[in-house]
Design a protein around this nucleic acid. Structure first.
Lengths: 134, 134
DNA sequence: TTTTATAGTATCTTTTTATACACTACAACC
DNA sequence: GGTTGTAGTGTATAAAAAGATACTATAAAA
């Protein structure tokens, strides 16, 4: 495993020095999962049940989703509320800590949209350039 | 692989509808690597050479770092500039597109710091509570 | 009566990711 | 003449992540 405490060579080390772990290394660890950002994003609009999340992530297996959810729960970014009913009902939502990520998620969404805009305009230019060559 | 085009069940789908891919799914793909966020973070302060980055990521092997860098380059978030000298010199830096991520990285850093604050104050409380029980 | 739905767990296999280690070129330094 | 440094590549192996599939309980609906 990647040992967070061993490196603190961040260019904000003046601000980081008070922590044993570099905040950025921590964030990298919290968010580096194949679907964690998306799960947080879906939960940022409302509380969802297990299958609600699963439906939004069509290519995830139950096992993997459970794993990712447990990991986010361990990190205290989401909570898990079990209703003792049959059939089972389990709700997932952001914790107070998790809600602090929402503005970051919103910026990411904005960035993704910009990225797509730029890429598509590049493609338009490329198509134009290659048709000009005919 | 995880097929970005197959899901668009984002709660911002009104804004996403113009794209084939949900911007958030794209961002998840761009950033989900074990060290991508950190690499971008280090490059956001200045242009770095291969070994400069490697030194900042003590637990990464050359091969893995090369792989991550190539992937970021493919996604057009970083550039790679080779100087034809001996010994070799290669510089990595953020592209224009990559620079647009900087504000997100800065917020992440802030979030990480908050997270650590909260966690450490919880630990203080925990330690206090358990010592009170003696 | 059979089917459907929920939120999982258990087991096995495949795929992906990561590691260790050896090797390259050539200039400059000792 | 031997060593060091750079930025890699190549091969083999080990570890981790992901996937497929089958299975659970029980209520309610068809």
């Amino acid at each position: 495993m990647f040992d967070a405490e061993r490196h603190n060579s961040c260019h904000m080390s003046d601000k980081c020095i008070r922590y044993k772990v570099c905040p950025m290394v921590l964030v990298q660890q919290l968010l580096s999962g194949k679907r964690k950002i998306l799960i947080l994003w879906y939960l940022s609009s409302k509380v969802l049940r297990f299958n609600d999340i699963k439906r939004r992530l069509p290519d995830v297996t139950q096992k993997m989703l459970t794993q990712q959810l447990r990991s986010l729960e361990e990190d205290n970014l989401i909570y898990r509320k079990v209703y003792p009913v049959v059939p089972p009902k389990v709700e997932y939502g952001l914790t107070d800590l998790g809600e602090r990520i929402i503005p970051i998620l919103e910026m990411m969404h904005g960035f993704g949209a910009e990225y797509l805009e730029i890429k598509s305009s590049e493609n338009v230019l490329q198509r134009k350039a290659s048709s000009d060559m005919l």
